[in-house]
């Protein structure tokens, strides 16, 4: 399900089945390597869209968590944890943060739930068929992380 008016009624009737939130982490930056930064964001959106498409009934795709590349790690982390705590309290027992921005990798240990980092592949030189295939392939690698996670107890958030 997506952050759309058309999906929210379905969600409200099926809440107990929708226990997983996906948050795309998307950087913004001007004046330096715009293209690279955009590529990261685009790729993350393709992947998260595909994940949502495959797991519509259990996964809720949130609007992207956006940040300036220059924002400090502590601040980003603090804000993301706020999102996480909010979603967790509202019944999303599993939260996945999905990004192509390598900056998050060093913060992995500090995150309350699962970070998925996928290196961005530029779609610039691909036609739409190739892009589709690439996204499908990458997503099929990630999907077991979800089904695996669902077999474990949710992480605790209390500290």
């Amino acid at each position: 399900m997506k952050w759309k008016v058309t999906d929210i009624d379905t969600y409200q009737q099926a809440k107990e089945y929708v226990d997983t939130a996906v948050i795309p982490l998307i950087p913004l930056q001007w004046g330096k390597s715009e293209k690279e930064t955009i590529t990261m964001g685009e790729f993350t959106e393709y992947i998260t869209d595909r994940i949502e498409n495959q797991f519509t009934g259990r996964v809720f795709l949130m609007p992207p968590f956006t940040y300036l590349k220059t924002e400090s790690s502590e601040e980003k982390l603090r804000r993301l944890m706020e999102w996480d705590a909010h979603l967790f309290q509202q019944g999303f027992k599993y939260v996945f943060y999905v990004t192509s921005d390598v900056a998050w990798k060093s913060l992995d240990k500090k995150l309350p739930d699962e970070l998925i980092w996928i290196p961005a592949i530029s779609s610039e030189t691909m036609n739409s068929d190739q892009l589709k295939k690439t996204v499908e392939q990458q997503t099929s690698q990630i999907m077991p992380l979800f089904t695996g996670k669902w077999q474990t107890e949710p992480n605790n958030r209390d500290e």
Binding site: A14, Y17, V18, N53, Q54, F55, T56, G57, R58
Partner: peptide, 8 residues
């Protein structure tokens, strides 16, 4: 498409 809530 699963007829429950739409997963694949």
């Amino acid at each position: 498409i699963c007829t429950h809530l739409g997963c694949t």
